[in-house]
Amino acid sequence: MFSRKSLMLTACLLVLSASVSAGAGHTYEFGQPATASKATRSIEVVMGDMSFEPKAIKVEAGETVRFVLVNKGQLLHEFNLGDAAMHASHQKEMLQMQQSGMLTPTGMKEMSHDMAGMDHAAMGHGMKHDDPNSVLVEPGKTAELTWTFSKATGLEFACNIPGHYQAGMVGKLTVSQ
C-alpha cells in the first residue's frame, strides 16, 4: 500500500523523468526565445476564462514577436507555443503539477526544497514551469513572451492547464515565408 509520501515521490519522479528527457537546453524547430529589444512588433493576446483574443495570429519566418499576455480571466492561464503533439505532452506534465498540489486554479505554489526527501532545486530539474516557449499568467496580471520564428510552419498557441485546451483555449499561429 502506498503512503502519501510514496505517492508524492512517484509524482516527482514522473515529472523529473519528463524534464530530463526534454533536456535543459530546449531546442525548437520553429524558433527560439528572444529579448524584447529584438522584437519587430508586439501582439497583445487577451486571456479570458477559456478563450484567447485574437483566436489566430500570422507571423513571418525570421520575425521576432513580443507577445503581451493579459489575463482578464478569473483563473491561472498559460500561453504556450507549439504544435498539437507538444501541447498533448505538456498537458500531461501540467496534470502532474496539478495533482501534486503545485498548480492551483489561480497560481503556482513553490515546491519545498525537501519534498519527499528529494532536493529538486539542487538537481536542477523537478517540478518547474520554465520552458522558454511558455509562460503562466495569474488572474489580473500581464506577462510577456518574445520569440523569433525560424521557419514557415503551422503552430498553435494554447493553455495547457488541465481542461483548458479541451474547453477551447487554443489558437492558430501561422508562420509564413
Rank of each mutant, 00 (worst) to 15 (best):
S3G: 06
R4W: 11
R4S: 10
K5G: 08
S6G: 09
M8Y: 04
L9T: 08
T10L: 07
V15N: 09
V15D: 12
L16M: 12
L16F: 15
V20P: 02
V20D: 03
S21V: 10
H26P: 06
H26T: 11
T27W: 04
T27Y: 04
T27K: 13
E29P: 04
F30V: 09
G31M: 02
G31S: 05
Q32E: 12
Q32L: 11
S37Q: 11
K38A: 15
K38C: 13
A39K: 12
T40W: 08
T40F: 07
V45P: 01
F52R: 00
F52H: 00
P54D: 07
P54I: 10
K55Y: 07
A56Y: 00
I57G: 00
V59T: 09
G62T: 14
G62I: 13
E63G: 02
E63C: 10
L69E: 05
K72E: 01
L76F: 12
E78L: 05
F79T: 11
N80Q: 15
L81F: 08
G82P: 10
A85T: 14
A85Y: 08
E93Y: 07
L95A: 15
M97A: 12
Q99R: 14
M102C: 07
M102G: 04
L103F: 01
T104Q: 02
P105T: 02
P105R: 03
T106W: 01
T106S: 08
T106E: 06
G107I: 02
E110A: 15
H113C: 14
M115Q: 09
G117D: 00
H120E: 11
G126W: 11
G126C: 13
M127K: 08
H129T: 15
D131V: 03
P132C: 00
N133F: 10
V135C: 05
T142F: 04
T142D: 02
E144Q: 03
T146N: 00
T148E: 05
F149M: 07
S150M: 05
S150H: 10
K151D: 12
T153P: 11
G154N: 09
L155S: 04
L155Y: 11
F157E: 06
N160Q: 00
P162V: 13
G163T: 12
G163A: 14
Q166H: 08
Q166A: 14
A167R: 15
A167P: 10
K172G: 02
K172C: 01
L173Q: 00
